[in-house]
Amino acid sequence: MIINHPLLGPRDAAEFVNRGDACQIDRPDGMTASMDEMHDYAYLRDNPAGEVRELWYHEQGDRSWLVVTRNTLTHEITSVEMARDVARARGRST
């Protein structure tokens, strides 16, 4: 698989590590979240056959986190965004 890095251009997926579902960006506030919210955030995943949005970390590159939209049946990648842009757009400050 080739991941089209927004800053670095096309890179081999072997340079990255996968961290799973991008829903992990939406971490509940540990001070206020209920047990159920924290449990579901940490342990439950949608895991669909088809399109997923997931986190990839460019460990062997510029160490940025990306949100990659990919199809789990065909491995086709349709969009790559900087995770920080996605997080900010969702109201996260950092």
């Binding site: 997926a13 996968n18 799973g20 789990t72 049946l73 491995h75």
Partner: peptide
């Protein structure tokens, strides 16, 4: 392989 997939095939790395 290290990423979610339902394709019953892997990649070269």
């Amino acid at each position: 392989d290290g990423y979610n997939t339902y394709a019953q095939r892997g990649n070269l790395p």
